[in-house]
Design a protein around this nucleic acid. Structure first.
Lengths: 194, 194
DNA sequence: CTGATTTATTATCTTTTGATAATGAATAGC
DNA sequence: GCTATTCATTATCAAAAGATAATAAATCAG
């Protein structure tokens, strides 16, 4: 496939779920804009309607809730993944989650409006959206089930096993809220394990 | 739309997300089989690959995990909703969840294989699957976020507000595990509130 | 490099939840 | 209708987590 270098990582990921010909691929890449943003850059605010989703070429981003002034992390995403406030993006309603970068990021910004237009022209992109939603559901379910099945300590161990990148690239107090505990409690859990 | 009476409830739900002509509707209903099952009937077992999803015409069903002999409820579904072990159904891998009926149920059983065949013939049913996955994601996210944002007491209050049917139709010890607490603890929460 | 800020750990105390057991209420099956 | 079983509440005790504060370690900005 002929494509600009900035789209090569996206190509590898999308091609897995939906093989495209040159014309479809060009139409698809046309809905993205490249954007380079610094560390701690705010991409989505709570209350805004999120009209964009982000494919991460490089860097780390965080999805989080705000509750009584506190930031409570919902997820962390790294290279070669999409990140979005999916509920807001899909339904075009005010977002209950915010997105920030944790490191300097190189992003491909996908426009919701242009995705919808693209899908009108090429209905096969319903398959792309379906794959994204199914994947998001399955990832979330694995994570959510750990909240009813496991103790905070078990959740921490699972995270180490399944997503060791998080420990390496995310500050500990953000991991704490991701696991549903306070930073103090996570520190105690780490001490118990070691 | 001309259709058998057993499909009238399904029609109302599906028509909202995906309008179909007569031919498409007939092809769609062709992938379902009507099945009447008693109370406490097991529909999906942990470890089995779930090749079916269920639309509930009447009754209540429960999705649950098994952990160390305990049953931990993941969700409850009533009339006019689908229930499935979605991860197993979508990926055709062994299910980590089981499904039982809580009341006598009248079900429309959808075959995964026939859904796939239908979608080959009529690609627009990708839109149906997309809508199901997106809805499942959004419902699950609202529920999952309550595990990191709210206390068990707040979760119970939210459930009363948002899904009062559960309190009316589901035994309390099953609600307890759904909220992530023991039956004893739920009893204490109820006492505090009253 | 250095002072200021943020982050992680530790200690203390309180609150909440879990584990277990006992009792009473409700339900199911014969 | 009666007995057995399941289910919900209450009590007691133990374990875990939250709140707060103090300190140490790491990071950041100028």
């Amino acid at each position: 496939m002929k494509t600009e270098p900035i789209f090569s990582q996206l190509y590898l990921q999308v091609n897995k779920m939906l093989p495209l010909n040159q014309k479809e691929w060009d139409a698809f890449t046309g809905i993205f804009i490249f954007r380079s943003v610094p560390k701690k850059f705010n991409l989505v605010r709570v209350g805004d309607v999120s009209r964009e989703a982000y494919f991460i070429n490089k860097g780390t981003a965080r999805l989080y809730f705000e509750k009584e002034g506190e930031e409570i992390s919902a997820n962390f995403m790294f290279e070669n993944n999409f990140i979005a406030s999916l509920e807001s993006f899909l339904l075009q309603i005010p977002s209950r989650q915010a997105i920030d970068t944790l490191e300097e990021c190189e992003l491909l910004v996908m426009s919701k409006q242009r995705l919808d237009e693209l899908t009108l022209d090429y209905p096969k992109f319903h398959i792309f959206s379906k794959a994204i939603a199914e994947m998001a559901f399955i990832m979330l379910q694995r994570r959510a089930s750990s909240f009813i099945l496991d103790s905070p300590e078990e959740r921490y161990m699972n995270m180490l096993q399944q997503r060791p990148e998080i420990l390496a690239r995310v500050p500990q107090h953000m991991i704490a809220s991701y696991l549903g505990v306070t930073p103090v409690s996570l520190s105690r859990i780490r001490k118990r394990i070691a």
